[in-house]
């Protein structure tokens, strides 16, 4: 039986590195890839090479057909507000803000905020477009009711 020392923490990095080699996991998983793209100012989602449907949030398997062949694609950034809510917050904490669910033109729905109109004015059915901005010090996909330039994704 293998004798392990009391504290094996110092072995963890070596073991992880070896496992990554064996499993060919040099590239990060889809969630981290999505976030790395956002940090570069790029909003990309996945599309299934087998069934053609788009996938969000980022996954290793297509939740439509089960295929593991997913590729990263650019999106139009166009969407429609599916539902919306106003989170009430004291002004000293930053004030009220909007939380919306947005249906992308490509199909997937995501949570976001519509940031260029008053939180109460965000309406179901409103046309919005996506831009990568910063929120709570992290890059995030945000939506605008009015066009904000003609950035391509």
């Amino acid at each position: 039986m293998l004798e392990l020392p009391d504290h094996t923490e110092h072995l963890k990095d070596d073991i992880l590195a070896e496992q990554q080699n064996n499993n060919n996991l040099e590239t990060p998983g889809p969630l981290q890839t999505f976030e790395e793209n956002l940090a570069k100012g790029e909003f990309r989602i996945q599309q299934c090479k087998d069934c053609g449907q788009h996938v969000f949030y980022p996954r290793l398997l297509c939740h439509h057909c089960g295929s593991n062949a997913l590729k990263w694609v650019a999106v139009s950034g166009k969407g429609v507000v599916y539902s919306s809510a106003v989170v009430r917050q004291r002004p000293e904490k930053g004030g009220d803000y909007n939380i919306s669910l947005i249906d992308l033109e490509e199909g997937p729905r995501l949570m976001s905020r519509v940031v260029d109109v008053d939180p109460e004015e965000v309406a179901i059915g409103m046309q919005v477009s996506a831009h990568v901005g910063m929120i709570n010090d992290k890059p995030a996909v945000l939506f605008y009711n009015k066009e904000q330039g003609d950035k391509e994704w």
């Binding site: 999505f34 539902s83 919306s84 989170v87 803000y97 939380i99 949570m111 995030a140």
Partner: peptide, 26 residues
């Protein structure tokens, strides 16, 4: 849970139900 929703601070669990209520009203 680390999810794509965290960054927006949706004030769970209330917001999901508010979203459902608003959609039902609509």
């Amino acid at each position: 849970m680390h999810t794509v929703e965290d960054v927006y601070r949706p004030r769970n669990p209330i917001t999901p139900y508010a979203l459902a209520a608003n959609r039902h009203m609509h």
